[in-house]
Design a binder for these strands. Sequence first.
DNA 1: CAAAATAGAATGAATGCTCTATCTAATGAC
DNA 2: GTCATTAGATAGAGCATTCATTCTATTTTG
Lengths: 206, 206
Amino acid sequence: MGELPVSKTVAKREARIAEILACAEKHFSIKGFHGAGISGIAADCGISVGHLYHYFGSKDELIQAVVKLEMRRQDESIAAFENLSPENLRIEMAELTNAIFSTDEEPFRTVLNFEILAEAQRNPDVAEILQQQDKQMRLRFVSILRRAGIDDPETRTELIFTIFSGLSARALRHPQQERAALLEVIKDVILKILGDKPVTSGAACA
Amino acid sequence: MGELPVSKTVAKREARIAEILACAEKHFSIKGFHGAGISGIAADCGISVGHLYHYFGSKDELIQAVVKLEMRRQDESIAAFENLSPENLRIEMAELTNAIFSTDEEPFRTVLNFEILAEAQRNPDVAEILQQQDKQMRLRFVSILRRAGIDDPETRTELIFTIFSGLSARALRHPQQERAALLEVIKDVILKILGDKPVTSGAACA
DNA sequence: CAAAATAGAATGAATGCTCTATCTAATGAC
DNA sequence: GTCATTAGATAGAGCATTCATTCTATTTTG
């Protein structure tokens, strides 16, 4: 049901590509983009080096594909907030804050994230992917806030993205942090940002 | 004046080490810890490979020394806030926010920062340095806030560190951002966090 | 003279990538 | 339906290069 009539070979090809990407992501996460080698990736997913090069023309191409995959995943985690009532939006955002700060499988906090940010500073192609995908995420989130009737959504989006980015860095730099207390404060901040009052200091406390 | 009577050779040795560290930092920033090679670093600072190994026993040692150097620099940029009057503290903090978000030579935003965060996830020695130095910075900043008579300094320190970390990530992901507007809002947030009111939402607007 | 500083060749492993060869499966002709 | 042709999938050896590291030899300096 709902299956498009893709030829068997095409389907197999796509499955293989997905498999390679998963292996590559794992290796890149563990050893870094430059630390991981093509031969290791190929070996780990049970194919030959030549075969891998049949699907990806260069290591750079593979890196970029993995970056795109990760960024798309982040975008999807934002898309999940579309079509929520303003009330549920606030609840779910608080939930996401929780997830980012406490679990290890959260898209915002993937191991690859800092690797990507570092790589973007020296690889223009990666920077382009990063920035273009961030733009899409921003536009998506802005329109979510706008639909929820929230004022000045651009600034609030930037504020929230800043805090989320910062949280994952803090989790690395201060892992023993007693999280429960800080979490409550951060959630408060997020909810306050999601309020429909202007974000400037005077007005927020008016 | 104030010079300790270090022997000439010791002084020369330290100068050489500093020179190597500067070259290594440059190469690591441009090509990453794993992308940069010992031979390139040695060549760039005009010494032989063997000579470099005379000062640093391994590449890992060199990496850790560079990480320590960068972290110490960040710590110093916080130490600069010690012994300020509460009034000046607020002013200088707003200034720092400005600097982090707009310039490229700001210690918090060094190219190496994300490289270090990525490396810390796979190299326990680097993680240890990162976390230990972060602890020192936290304690320093907490005591600064405490001396300024600010309530619950631990939470406020964590909040501010989170925002600063997030800002440098945002600068990479959204470089075309119109910064002036956001900057004003962020500065307001920082100043509000530095206020002596409790940080919880209800009380802050009481 | 002895100890530290320095150079640079040499080592062996690992790197990204290419090349050729085989094998499998889809397609077309009759 | 059956055989021939072709296109894609796959393997793995091989290439040149670079890597981190070590070794030995030479120069400089205290």
